[in-house]
Amino acid sequence: MSIDHQNTPQSKKERYLTFFLGDEQYGIAIERIKEIIAMMKITSVPKIPSYMRGVINLRGSIIPIVDTRLRFEMPFRDADMHTAIIIVEVEKVNIGFIVDRVEEVVSIDASNLSEPPRFGGQIDTDFISAVAQIEENVVMILDVLKLFEADEIINLAEIQNKQAEGV
């Protein structure tokens, strides 16, 4: 099936879920997204980076939650009726990202993606893998892996290694 897919003209189009933080629009590749849920009770966990808000109980699974605003060093904002949690799979682990508002799913042709700008904007460009123009708006495509600090990624790998050794 995947071979067919590559041969069709639409193949260069990738689908992204877009959402807002303040006035800025971001996108995450749709394959990574498990589900979108409404804001729910978050249990705080001590001694974790401030942008990690804690954990939630998603139908029996405990899932860590990142406040995307705080991660991007934007001011904290109380949840309202639009606030949503996007559950994203990162390195085989589900992680929830709190966003201000979920917008839509868009198809973006690979040719419309461009290199992220090296300056300006409110956030560190490391998180942004590409920028796309959709009508009036600029959508910043996020690299979810980079949303975690380098040492955390190493940590993930370490934990996996340890588990592998343990077995």
């Binding site: 966990v45 001590p46 001694k47 974790i48 990690m52 954990v55 029996g60 699974s61 405990i62 899932i63 860590p64 390195e91 682990v93 589900n94 992680i95 975690f148 955390e152 940590n155 993930l156 934990i159 996996q160």
Partner: peptide, 13 residues
């Protein structure tokens, strides 16, 4: 349940 790999470095939990 584990808290997920990203939180497991909190030793106290």
């Amino acid at each position: 349940k584990t808290l997920g790999k990203s939180l497991s470095k909190v030793k106290e939990i």
